[in-house]
Structure formats: C-alpha cells, structure tokens
Simulated scan of single mutants.
Amino acid sequence: MFGLIGIVVIFVMVFGGYILAGGKMAIILKSLPFEMMIIGGAAVGAFLIGNDMSVVKHTIKDLGKVFKGPKWKPGDYRDLLCLLFELVRLARESPVSVEEHVEDPNTSPIFAKYPKILADKESVELICDTLRSVSMNYDDPHQVEEVLDKRMESTLQNALHSSHALTTMADGLPALGIVAAVLGVIKTMGSIDQPPEVLGKLIGGALVGTFLGVFLAYGLVAPFAVRVKAVTEEDAHFYQLIREVLVANLYNHSTNICIEVGRQNTPAHFRPSFVELEEALKTVKQSAA
C-alpha cells in the first residue's frame, strides 16, 4: 500500500511542480515513447546480460515485495513458536517419535496445523535438518550453530541477488539517460538550419532523455531495490528464530525456555507478548492431550 502511495506522490510532486512552474507536458509526452524505448530497452538488455535466468525470475517475483511487504506476519511468528514447541517437546519425550515428522513433514499432523510454514521449503528444511542432525548424535551446540550460521548467511545472500541486480540497474540508468540525450543532440545538429522555435523543441526533447534516466534511477528503481532488500532481511528474522530455538534446545534448556529464547529474539514489531504466546501454547497442549 505504501509503495503505491509513494509512487503516486513521486509523480504528482515531480510533474505537478513542473506544470505549476509553467512547464509544458507536450514536449515530454512527444519524446517519452522514444526515450523510454532507448533508455528502458537498454536497461533491460543490460539487466539480461548481467544476470542469469534464475536471478531474472527472482527479481520479477521480488518486485511484489515492494507492495506486499514482508511475507511473515506477527501471527506467523507465534505459529512458528508453537510448532517448535510441539517438536522440541516431542523430541524430549520420545526421540524416535519425532523422526516420522522430520522425515516426512508433508504427512505430519504437527506440521499440518501450520500450512503457511509447511508451504515454505526453507523453513521446513531448516527445522527438519537440524532435528535430524541431533538424532545422528551431531549435537555439539557450537558445531550446529556454525553450520546454521553458514547456511542462513548463504540463503540470505542468494535472496539478496534481486536487490543487487536492481541496484546495478539504478546505477546505470543515469548514464543511459545521457546516451539518449546525446542521440537527441545528434538529431538536433542535423536540423541546425531550422529556426530557434524548432531547435528549442528538439533540444527540449533531447533533455528528456537525461531527465528520464535520472528520474527512473532515483525515483523508482533505486527505492525498489532498497525496499526489496529491507523486506528480504526482515523475512530472514523468521529463519533466525528457528536457529535460536533449536540451538537453545541443544544446550538442554527446558522446552519453555527454548521458546522464550525464540520469542525474545523475534523483532519487536512481530514479537508476540508473553501472555499471547502462553495462551497459544496452552491451546497446543490441550489439543495434544
């Protein structure tokens, strides 16, 4: 929602100010299709040259984050803590029983209670792989922490590829705007024998290229890149919570303490209150009884 509001504000303020200052949109509108073809086409072409198909698809998909915001909402963090509570408690009571949930989470009645989490491949694999490593006696907390840190760092870096690609595009757009402007000047020089009013329009059209390159770079693409990065990093906290709870479990803290460690490490604006989480866990215990 804020993304759409921001775009509207940009266009209204920039072009509204231009019109109020006495500027005429006719020159911009006449040159816009050709300048956009040159600048936008070159930017897309450079983007395709600099990135493989997986990054291109990832970037197109991640553009939705500008408008949708983070994938994980406050209720999802509460559900994750409840899921981890059930799994950790079961692993303490019966290590053999938890294996069926870890080996095939899609048929697990515990995972089935949390369909959004179950649908997220990274979350499920992170939980199952860590619990599976414990059953393999790979239970040195320091070793597990190191493995999890490297895994999450790699996952985050891969998720940030789209943001880096958009940032690179934003950096190149002003230069492409200059390319379009130079082509406009070349066109103008071919009509140097024309009267001033004609030359003025041609020069104005050429300058639209410079304007468009800078406007697209700093008014749209760069903010998109920043927003995608911010949302991606915010969603990474969800996986960090899994790490905190499962590592606390390896240190043999009580199940409730493990969950409290996770709650405390949840970002403040997503963190469920102690009472809210306690009520949710009470419901989980009753359903399991």
Rank of each mutant, 00 (worst) to 15 (best):
R227V: 07
H161K: 14
N265S: 08
G172H: 11
V147D: 06
T155E: 08
S31Y: 12
L220P: 00
Y18N: 09
G69V: 13
E103R: 12
I186G: 12
L81Q: 07
D193H: 15
A230M: 06
V144M: 12
K121G: 05
K187I: 10
I60Y: 08
T130H: 03
H237R: 02
H101Y: 03
F270K: 13
H164F: 12
G219Y: 04
P105M: 08
F274G: 07
M189H: 10
E197L: 11
H269W: 04
F211G: 11
P267N: 07
A222V: 00
L199A: 10
G16W: 12
Q240T: 07
L277T: 00
Q264A: 11
Q264T: 05
L156N: 08
L81Y: 08
A206E: 05
V8E: 03
K187E: 12
V98T: 06
H58T: 11
T210R: 10
T232L: 03
A181T: 14
E278M: 05
R92D: 06
N158Q: 14
P223W: 02
Q157P: 00
P267I: 00
S108K: 00
D120T: 00
P70N: 11
V214N: 13
I257R: 03
L81R: 05
F67S: 09
F11V: 15
A180T: 03
P196I: 15
V185R: 08
S108A: 05
